[in-house]
Design a protein around this nucleic acid. Structure first.
Lengths: 125, 125
DNA sequence: GCGCTGTATCGATAGCTGCCTATGAAGAGC
DNA sequence: GCTCTTCATAGGCAGCTATCGATACAGCGC
């Protein structure tokens, strides 16, 4: 579940809608405007040093889950700022969160990362 | 050559410096601040619908090269705006350009794309 | 030389984004 | 109930960015 949010609360992009359809590698065929806008949001989410480090921290953490308090303490930024960045990453579909008791844990969405990786892969041709 | 720019004119990132060193997959180990900043610039370059479509158009074009005039005519944007986006992509190391006579041709830098794809690939673990 | 065409740069402006402080909401423990 | 802790949201402000028109630069043809 997605914690305290009404489902559909945020403009979640990423895997919604397209299902398991294999992505056609960005450079294989011209992108239409709508697809470009959706994909750009995900790349934009990754286009910030803090968010990139957040993804890295979450992914590298044993167990695959990290408490927000651990993420906040890893940066010289205020807690609301970290919370904001986590929100952007979650809206992009790159991470997911779950509340357990007092704490909220974040983990990666591997499928979303793989999808973007596949987009950037250049066909042998 | 890089056309009309003095080499080092722009803050080119991407493959400069790191050589052929295999990138350690973002989620394998926590990213330090400097590396995050460099990678974020590349993702940020991809985090715009117009630039994403530009990359797609260049990559999907037969011959691997596209004249600026063709790119400009593919969008409902002014020529300076397209030129600006191409400059951002080139500064990120994602594309390269070459002038031949009156026209300037742009092509992808596959190694840069592959590098980012590798970063996003999640290890099996 | 002169003009014409294709690109890049300049300068300005509207909109977005990252950061903060202050505040609100949700649980746990009393 | 109240209080404390953890996290999210709201509001505001400074800096960046996407866009434009105007202009400069680079080749080609004359």
């Amino acid at each position: 579940m997605s914690v305290q949010h009404v489902p559909g609360d945020l403009p979640i992009v990423g895997l919604t809608g397209s299902g398991a359809c294999a992505q056609p590698a960005l450079v294989s065929e011209p992108l239409d405007g709508a697809a470009a806008a959706g994909l750009a949001q995900v790349f934009k989410a990754l286009g910030d040093p803090v968010r990139l480090r957040l993804v890295s921290l979450i992914g590298a953490h044993a167990g695959g889950e990290v408490c927000v308090c651990d993420l906040t303490s890893a940066f010289d930024l205020s807690q609301p700022t970290i919370s904001h960045h986590l929100k952007v990453l979650r809206a992009a579909g790159l991470i997911d969160s779950e509340r357990r008791g007092t704490w909220v844990y974040y983990r990666l969405v591997p499928a979303a990362l793989e999808r973007m990786a596949g987009l950037l892969s250049v066909p042998v041709a």
